[in-house]
């Protein structure tokens, strides 16, 4: 089987700062990829490149055999992207916003309307369909974004920290949804800091640090390779070494400082 996403020797730098230093990655249809790494590791840059937002990179990125720099529009149509921050026009209502999203994908308004209503009802937003989103909580906005990423039934779904702000029940729904989507053959690219969820939902885990892939494999493989019992522990070992424990110690000792400028 051919990979649906193929990344070869991907380099990207902003000015003199190199963010990605030779990423090589193959992703197959129906896979759930957990893409993890510390802040500034290059996760968002990879996502932006996959979404066709950045084109000034070196190397080769193909999706379904198409070059992302040449068939950008076609590829954008295949991808559903749920951005990290609640990036939406929050003076609109969910109905207006999602109708707009549907129109950008050239979907029929009736189809958009029906899908939107059913998705948002499933996520518990049915009573807020026509309220402006500036009053919404972070979790509610996140649900609208998730709906906007799924609306056009994309083949590849890129989720950037999709669970932030969601309540426990919604987290369960989304986790279940991810595995159902994968069973249907959708490819899911899941970026997150939440190790326990990545560990559970991902078929394959890719860990990047400072622009380089430092681990790549299923959870079981990584466990065998690295000899750690949890993803959290592997992450810590691979990215910062053992300084986490001493950082906690530093904070504790800082809290007990007596000298210096204290008022009464």
């Amino acid at each position: 089987m051919d990979p649906i996403i193929s990344i070869r020797n991907l380099y990207k730098s902003y000015g003199s700062k190199e963010v990605l230093k030779g990423i090589n990655l193959d992703i197959y249809p129906g896979q759930v990829i957990g893409y993890i790494g510390p802040n500034g590791a290059g996760k968002s840059t990879t996502v932006k490149i996959l979404c066709g937002l950045l084109s000034d990179f070196e190397g080769e990125v193909t999706i379904k055999g198409m070059d992302i720099r040449k068939d950008t529009l076609k590829i954008k149509g295949l991808i559903g992207y749920v951005p990290e921050l609640a990036e939406l026009y929050d003076v609109l209502t969910p109905t207006e916003f999602l109708n707009f999203m549907g129109a950008l994908y050239n979907m029929k308004p009736e189809v958009t309307a029906e899908r939107m209503e059913r998705i948002l009802t499933a996520l518990g937003l049915q009573s807020n369909l026509n309220k402006r989103m500036d009053t919404f909580s972070k979790g509610m906005k996140q649900k609208v974004l998730i709906a906007s990423g799924l609306l056009h039934n994309p083949e590849i779904i890129i989720l950037d920290e999709p669970l932030s702000g969601l309540d426990a029940n919604s987290v369960i729904i989304i986790k279940e949804l991810i595995s159902r989507l994968a069973k249907e053959g959708k490819t899911i690219f899941y970026c997150s800091h939440m190790m326990d969820i990545v560990e559970k939902v991902s078929e394959k885990i890719v860990l990047i640090d400072q622009g380089v892939i430092v681990a790549n494999g299923s959870f079981a493989e990584l466990k065998a390779q690295l000899g750690e019992s949890s993803l959290e522990q592997m992450f810590a070992n691979l990215t910062v070494g053992s300084t986490n424990a001493s950082a906690a110690g530093d904070i504790m000792s800082a809290m007990h400082t007596q000298s210096g400028e204290q008022h009464e």
């Binding site: 066709g52 937002l53 939406l88 950008l104």
Partner: peptide, 13 residues
């Protein structure tokens, strides 16, 4: 800047 996240990831030329 929001346009970059909302409109540009869509298939809009």
């Amino acid at each position: 800047v929001k346009d970059n996240f909302i409109i540009l990831p869509k298939p809009v030329s």
